Simulated scan of single mutants.
Amino acid sequence: MVTQSSGRHHAPLSQHEMGPRDGRAYATDSGSDAQERAMLRLTHEQMMVNQALVEKIFACERAESALRASEQQLHDLLAHQLATREDERKRISRELHDSLAQNLLALRIDIVMLHQHTTKRHYRLRDRIGAALDNVDITLRTVKGLLGELRPSCLELGLQATVDMELRKFTRASGIACELSGSPAVDALALGEEELLTIYRVLQECLNNVFRHSLASRVNVRLDGSTDRLTMRIVDNGIGFDPTTPRKPSSFGLLDLHERLTAHGGELVVKGAHTHGTEVVVNIPIGPRLRNEPGRPAIG
């Protein structure tokens, strides 16, 4: 008798014959693969987006740097133009003084001598000579005014003297009362010719705006100085204006002042209110240098 072996050989089970536990494992493996592929795809897309953002940031930084460089070049160009304009004014002023003014003065002397040697019997000739002398005097005053506008001669007298003379001239021309005040420290400040000329031009433009637009009856100017900064305040009692109002396309007065002061590291602050007047504050750095410092020429 042949005994049947107890060991049995089982054929592999089909998918249908699998138990529910094996089916869940297979489905889980398939879901993990799909999820992993989706995460890889999202990661790749996110990397592409991040790379595009980085390139965009770099492009914006390059554009901002180019814009700053262009703005600085524009400021440098305007400063150069202002300096060139002042140099041209200085040259024209010197030529007017050395040629035209001197020739007019010599002509006046000749006319005066001719008038003195003309007898009273030639009254018509004396009248003609007197009229010619009057014309020469008018021309001399005109040339003197042009010289003062091109290159003020009072700059060599110092800051306070320059401001005081300009205020006196403005009062004579406009009838608007002006008052100058300041701290004693201003007299000890060492201001170069360029700084003095800048302050003078700013004051000149501000007074011109007061005369043309403010309807003011009084202007107060105050000068305050420290070891490293000069402050000039110009206050009027006029009708005022709104500084935030956009400027007119043909108005460059304040812009010109801003550029002048920017070239020296200074700033211009304009404060105004309707019917409450206008205040212009000018700050310009000058450095801790005293007028009587050894090795530096005196200016005042």
Rank of each mutant, 00 (worst) to 15 (best):
E61R: 09
G175F: 08
V202H: 13
L255S: 14
L290H: 08
A173V: 02
G225H: 02
I92W: 03
S70P: 01
A69E: 10
K120N: 07
H274F: 06
E149M: 04
T119R: 15
P243D: 00
G300V: 03
S251R: 03
V143F: 04
Q15A: 13
L223V: 03
G182K: 07
Q160A: 07
A101F: 07
A177R: 15
E64D: 05
H264A: 02
N283R: 14
L261E: 03
R91Y: 02
T275Y: 10
R94Q: 15
C178A: 12
T198I: 11
V282H: 04
Q46W: 02
D164M: 03
A101C: 05
L290I: 02
G287S: 05
I109A: 13
E195D: 07
L13V: 09
I92V: 12
D110I: 10
L78V: 12
E88A: 15
V210A: 11
I129F: 07
A161K: 10
L191D: 12
E194G: 13
L147N: 04
L82H: 12
C206L: 13
L147A: 01
G130V: 01
E179C: 08
L255T: 11
G7M: 14
L257N: 12
E17D: 14
V219T: 04
H16R: 12
H80L: 10
P20M: 08
E279Q: 13
S183Y: 10
A273L: 11
R229K: 06
